[in-house]
Simulated scan of single mutants.
Amino acid sequence: MRKADKEGPKAMTGSITTYTEDLVEIGEHRVRKGELDRRSFLAAVAAMGLAPAALTPATAATGELVLVNFGGVAAKEYKKSFGPGCERATGLKLVVDGSGASPAKIRAMVDAGSVVWDVCDYAPQIGIQLGGKYLEEIDYSIVDKQKLLPGFALQYGCAAYVFSFIMAYNKQMVPEPPRGWADFWDLKRFPGKRAMFKTPIGQLEAALLAAGVEPDKLYPLNLDLALGKIKDLKSEIIWWETGAQSQQLLRDREVTMGNVWHSRATVMRNETRGNIDFTFNQGVLVVGGWAIPKGNPAGRANANKFIAAAQDPKAQLSIYLSLFNGPANLQTIELVPEDKRVLNPSDPANLKLQAISNPRYWGENSAAIQDRWLDAIS
């Protein structure tokens, strides 16, 4: 019996996975199934900056650039696929730290004057929280704004990819394809359990869209309304904490619909030949990318050169074709094969259907929201 079964149908248990950690798991799954060759996989995760999970925190040395992320592939293979590109751009050897960057770690390093990281995997709200005291500004004389989706060239971070929270559903369990979050909340027309991520971002926006709030009017979030909608549905929600859990809930028919990452929904759509499908309509688009800690050892210029190199359209195309996350580089979007564009969250046809997550709002309000969120779902 799974742990979730022991503790009831409303919650999954364990550590909550980040989107970037889940991308590595998806890639490894596709390699095992023979859908993706290992070389393409390694090139994709390298361009994403996904680091080996087993590494301990790295210490910068002369002639090195240290990249920190949340783990994934073996160090030797990672360096083989991405190290040469780093050296061409900066003249520095790439060192990967898989220990994970958090705001607390960045603050501690900068305050102590002992920064060992040069580039960090970046959530835009962290850039808002840490600002100029703890992060370097992105130098857009080096990093090309024209290669980024509008609005994603941020002061203290640069977009590298985008992903979406979308509504996935099992076709055999619904009378017709649901069209939006109002259908997700409609238990009469669409009976059955729902899967939702056990963090507020992407879930509160969905609740407000279900309540009829227009996508461009979401922020500031009406927390009373959003949390009220969550409470209305809570008895039918199974909370997922990892991408694999969200996928299993839908495949095992434990839920009729789920608010899940588009990358996981794409895997399910492909593997079930469309029996599990999803829509970008009213999806919530989120940006991920890079940040530079204040006083990074390799210097601000080299960190920016690394980020600029990561904008390479061919590398971003490889990421999308391998791991399904959306390119942030406009030139890459134009290179996506016609038959693959329907599943790309940053394709113009899909982009116009979605709400865009507001990093400034989340950066300024996430702590207060988290307290209310935990009260609402407990």
Rank of each mutant, 00 (worst) to 15 (best):
T18F: 15
T20K: 12
E28N: 07
R30Q: 01
L42D: 07
A46P: 10
L50Q: 10
A51N: 13
A53Y: 00
N69W: 14
G72L: 05
K76A: 15
A89I: 02
L94N: 01
V96I: 13
A108V: 06
M109P: 00
V110K: 03
D111S: 11
A112D: 12
V116L: 12
A123K: 06
Q125V: 00
K145F: 00
V162A: 15
F163D: 02
S164H: 06
F165I: 02
M167R: 03
N170P: 01
N170W: 06
P175F: 12
E176Q: 15
W181L: 12
F184G: 01
D186A: 05
F190I: 00
I201F: 13
Q203F: 10
E205F: 13
E214K: 15
E214C: 04
P215Y: 14
K229L: 13
S235Y: 01
S246K: 01
L249A: 13
R251G: 00
N270M: 13
R273Q: 14
N281T: 04
P297K: 08
A301E: 14
I307F: 07
P313K: 11
F324K: 06
N325G: 09
G326E: 03
Q331H: 13
D339F: 08
K340F: 12
L351Q: 05
K352D: 03
Q354R: 08
A355C: 11
Q370N: 12
I377T: 08
